[in-house]
């Protein structure tokens, strides 16, 4: 269970999050919608510990672990995963090596042994098949030369490999056509589980037709201004943010 209380944060001295409260019980999928510049990506970076995003107050706990006091890699080991709005290209770091290093780092942090090379390949094969990811893609450098859809599928592949407890999807739908969106949504839906929760950040309602949330929140001006069921997303789509936020 993720519990965020009265979270405030700033970038370059500019306050972006203004006392944000949010609770996401295990097994649930929550969506956050909001206009551009509302602070959605800021929230995801603050939770995952990016440099330059300074927390000035409040708390964020995942299953009782204080996330805000941990390094980004420790947060990943604690079960947090962020699917980036803009996945990062890393020339020279090969996909398979990257996935294996990430998985083993997390296992090590949890006090587990490194995964056997053969077991790793088996696991990877299974996950990559689900997402329609070709072997050839895994021979390339991380996200280098990937299409928009491939980058987002790659985020879901990493999520599937690392088996986090809490996943943030930051505008995973942006730049995807409907077919690519379905593949990604199916991938996420397969990962839904009793002991795993999701925060799906999106600007549009469309994604939520495929990843159906339990709860929808509206983020504006750096805090949650409204919370409801899936119907809230439809209402937002019809009326636009202006009316609701006002």
């Amino acid at each position: 269970m993720l519990i965020i209380k009265n979270l405030t944060a700033e970038i370059d001295g500019k306050q972006i999050l203004n006392g944000l409260d949010l609770e996401i019980p295990s097994g649930e999928v929550h969506a956050i919608m909001g206009p551009n510049g509302a602070g959605k990506s800021t929230l995801s970076y603050v939770l995952s510990g990016r440099d330059g995003y300074e927390v000035t107050g409040g708390s964020a706990e995942l299953d009782g672990v204080d996330l805000l006091s941990l390094d980004p890699n420790e947060r990943a080991a604690a079960g947090l995963f962020l699917a980036f709005q803009y996945p990062v290209e890393i020339p020279g770091v090969q996909m398979t090596n990257f996935l294996k290093t990430a998985l083993n780092s997390i296992r090590k942090a949890k006090g587990q042994d490194e995964i056997e090379a053969l077991d790793f390949l088996k696991l990877l094969k299974a996950k990559q098949k689900d997402l329609g990811i070709a072997d050839e893609m895994l021979k390339r450098a991380v996200n280098v030369g990937f299409s928009g859809g491939e980058k987002k599928r790659n985020e879901v592949l990493q999520m599937a490999m690392l088996e986090p407890k809490f996943c943030i999807l930051d505008e995973t739908d942006s730049g995807l056509d409907i077919d690519a969106l379905k593949v990604v949504a199916d991938g996420v839906n397969r990962l839904r589980a009793k002991d795993r929760s999701f925060l799906v950040i999106t600007h549009y309602q469309r994604l939520l037709d495929y990843i159906v949330p339990d709860v929808v929140h509206v983020l504006a001006g750096g805090k949650i201004v409204k919370t409801g069921g899936p119907e809230l997303a439809k209402e937002l789509e019809a009326k636009g943010y202006a009316e609701l936020v006002a």
Binding site: N73, A76, F81, I90, V93, N97, A102
Partner: peptide, 19 residues
């Protein structure tokens, strides 16, 4: 890229080494 690697659980030293 440093943050991307670390967000996947890779410690700072190891991420630097990879880069």
């Amino acid at each position: 890229p440093m943050f991307y690697l670390r967000s996947r659980g890779i410690p700072e030293d190891k991420a630097r080494q990879l880069l």
